Amino acid sequence: MLNTTVPPASGAMRPRRPKRSRFVPRSPAFWFLFPAVAALAIIGIYPLLLALYNSFHLYKLADVAAGTPFVGFDNYIATLSDPSFWGALGRTVCFLCLTLPIEIALGLFAALMLHRTALPWLRVAARVGLVIPMATTYAVVGLIGRLIFNRQFGVVNYLLGLFGIPPLDWLADPTLAFVSVMIMDIWQWTPFCALILLAGLAMVPKEAEEAARLETPKWSKILWHLQRPYLLPGLTAILILRSADMLKMFDAVFTMTRGGPGTATEFISIYIQRIAFRLFDQGMASAQAVLLLILTIVLSRLYIRFVYREAV
């Protein structure tokens, strides 16, 4: 039987697929990442650029009719010459230098205890218990602190009364108010340090750890010579994240002490909030926020350079 199919002519038109625009990506990964990138741009990048723009302009909410004239670096110069700004920044750095080492030390102690325990159920229960303070929001932590350190019915004064110590006015005394904020922050974020360091200890080879324990019974030598390299990456993450959190700490302190008494707990974030929404000087507050961001970046780079470098 003869094949009667006629081959198409060389010049015949074939159906073509519709062309896609070169600006529309074909990869499905793009469409999965696009919502997160868009949210990051709207929530994070746009406010940052707006703050950077406002920092170079005179922008006062109480005098909107005056507009936002360009003033260059005047806001930065005024900020750097403001003693109140340096006072708030000094209190913040003092809070960081006092609180963060305590959190790391207590977290390391808890991580070592959980790492050495031979009871699996105790590890699980401890990890669940450690998550609870971290899951508590900052504002709630501040409200809990107001109740715990209340002069009349606070738990702390009740416990001190059992030892014959008269009640202390924790939130009205400048030093005690600062200490009370430290205690609440240590309570909330020591579990975070413990979990991160416990994850680092879990990376240590069991054979090497058992051999080290047979060679020397001193846990300090095992910690320094064997476990320390595995702890440094987690320690670097703790330093970066907690330093950034403390430099922008606002909710817990504001709900607990309102920055008082006086300026005893007025950290840099509370000071910026006062400039922006009580004095209505958005330009000055934006310049202070940009300087705080620069300080956070510098600290992060120093941590990576001098702490993380020892782990590699």
Rank of each mutant, 00 (worst) to 15 (best):
R146L: 12
L198K: 08
L159P: 04
H115R: 07
A139Q: 12
A199N: 08
W187T: 03
G67Q: 12
A88H: 13
S81K: 11
F23N: 12
W187I: 01
H115A: 09
A202T: 06
M113S: 15
T137H: 07
L160F: 13
T92I: 09
F254K: 06
P7E: 10
A177L: 02
K248E: 00
I297S: 02
L98W: 12
Y230T: 01
L195H: 06
R301T: 10
L160M: 14
W189S: 00
A139M: 11
T68C: 08
A126H: 02
F73P: 15
P83I: 03
Y303Q: 06
P205K: 09
D281E: 13
G259K: 05
R26S: 14
L201S: 07
E215K: 00
V298P: 01
G72S: 11
D169C: 00
S243C: 06
A39H: 02
L299D: 04
G90L: 13
A172E: 07
W189C: 00
Q273T: 10
P69F: 11
G129Q: 09
K19G: 09
Q273N: 15
I222T: 15
I196T: 05
M113N: 12
L48N: 13
K206H: 12
L293M: 08
S300Q: 02
T68D: 11
E207I: 02
T265C: 00
P18Y: 10
W219L: 14
L143D: 11
Y138H: 10
Q188C: 04
P261V: 08
P83W: 03
L247D: 01
L61N: 13
Y230D: 03
W170V: 00
Q288W: 07
A194I: 00
P25T: 04
G154L: 10
D245Q: 01
F56C: 08
T99K: 01
V124W: 04
P15W: 09
M13Y: 06
R146V: 06
K206T: 14
R258P: 07
V37G: 05
I102N: 00
P15N: 03
I45L: 15
L201F: 07
D63K: 13
L302K: 04
L239E: 04
F192T: 02
A289M: 11
L100A: 07
A88C: 15
L49I: 11
R16K: 11
L112R: 06
Y138P: 03
L108G: 09
K60I: 10
P25W: 06
W224N: 08
S55F: 12
E207Q: 12
Q227N: 04
A287V: 05
I42V: 13
A208D: 08
C94L: 15
I45F: 08
A212W: 00
G200W: 05
P8W: 01
E210V: 01
T99W: 01
L160G: 09
R17A: 14
T263P: 01
A51S: 15
G129F: 05
A66W: 05
A202F: 05
M1G: 15
F34R: 04
F23A: 14
G90H: 08
S269E: 08
F85A: 09
A237Y: 01
A118S: 15
D185S: 04
I104M: 05
S300T: 08
M256P: 03
P133V: 07
V204Y: 11
G142E: 12
L168K: 10
V64D: 03
W187M: 04
